[in-house]
Amino acid sequence: MWITSSKDTVLTPTAVALGNFDGFHRGHQQVVRPILNPNQVAVDSQKVGGGYSETTPPFGISGYGTVVTFNPHPQEFFTGQTKKLLTPLPEKIEILRRFGVQQLVLLPFDKDLASLTPTQFVEQILVEYLQATRVSVGFDFRFGRHRMGSTEDLKAIASQYGIDVEIVSRFPCPYGDRISSSIIRESLTEGHLNRANQLLGRAYTLLGEVVQGQQLGRTLGFPTANLQLPPEKFLPRYGVYAVLVTGLAARYGKTIAPQLGVMNIGCRPTVAGDNPTVEVHLLDWDGDLYGQSLTVSLEGFLRPEQKFASLEQLKAQIQRDCTHARTYLQARKNLPLLD
């Protein structure tokens, strides 16, 4: 997947999906599908797809299948505060690549972009910059200064330049009027992991590098990988999770199946921890993990964070957590993947 934030290096012409796409949930996926190669078999979000050339537009689409998003997130620009993201940029890149997107354009969201009228946005961004031949947006997409442009405005203005606009209808959601990143954040905060994963269409993931920790888990007989995440990563409810871990193959140069694991997110109140940590114990692994980038898929929420009266009680609970996680993950092997 080609990634650029410069009009000098963008691959044109383009078939564009417009939006922020934080989380890339099932609603977002519906917006992106119209700009993908129609001959490509649907790519499951947990498998690697794509295979486009960086020099040839995909067959059947009059332009490079391009996701256009904003960097930083518009809310950060207007509020001046860092926004916690479901998918920080490295995660978003990997998910889009696996989904089959050919190009990712990161529009710098600044004062100049924010001040464009809807007509100027179409003319300067879609026509001149991207040379778009078609555009796909969600039903509630807004654009231009003060978000004054509607989807119907986009359709009317773009038609003057021969740009076809597809407005993707509302994706059904059993937990509200529509699937949204806000509902997913709320679900994760409350520990409703299954709900969040259903809305995402895949397991919520954490992507980070293994760094040196206090090695308390090793002294208890359960060595853990301390995961350093991007500071903007949105953390779910503190507690213990059953997880699947990938990324081990990079160091060992061979195919390694996803590893079963148990993960703790929180401040470790039993040992008077101050700052939240993310620690993963692999149930069937004893190799070196330092410096590796791991992807941790949250498959099940086992219990909330709690304080124990002694380290012995903590150790006994960790053993129960490991047994619970193994049973849970092995039972899920026979379940179909979320569509």
Rank of each mutant, 00 (worst) to 15 (best):
T4K: 09
V10D: 04
L11T: 00
V16R: 06
L18D: 00
G27V: 07
N37I: 04
N37P: 07
N39I: 09
V41K: 10
V43R: 13
V48W: 10
G51Y: 11
G51I: 05
T55Q: 13
T56K: 05
P72L: 06
H73S: 04
E76Y: 06
Q81V: 05
K84G: 13
P88I: 08
L89M: 11
L89Y: 12
L96D: 04
V101W: 13
V105L: 15
D110L: 02
K111S: 09
L113E: 01
A114M: 01
P118N: 08
P118Y: 13
V122R: 00
V127H: 08
Y129P: 00
V135Q: 07
V137S: 10
V137D: 14
G138F: 13
D140L: 02
R147M: 00
G149A: 02
S150I: 09
T151A: 10
T151G: 11
A156D: 08
I157H: 03
I163G: 03
R178G: 03
I183P: 03
R185C: 07
E190I: 10
H192T: 07
G201P: 12
T205F: 01
V210A: 10
G213N: 02
Q215C: 15
Q215D: 14
T219E: 08
L229R: 11
P230G: 08
V243D: 01
T246W: 04
A250Q: 11
T255Y: 05
T277W: 06
V280D: 01
V280F: 04
L283D: 10
G287A: 12
L289Y: 01
L289M: 00
Y290N: 00
F301L: 09
L302I: 10
K307E: 08
H324T: 15
L329Q: 00
L329H: 01
Q330H: 04
D339R: 12
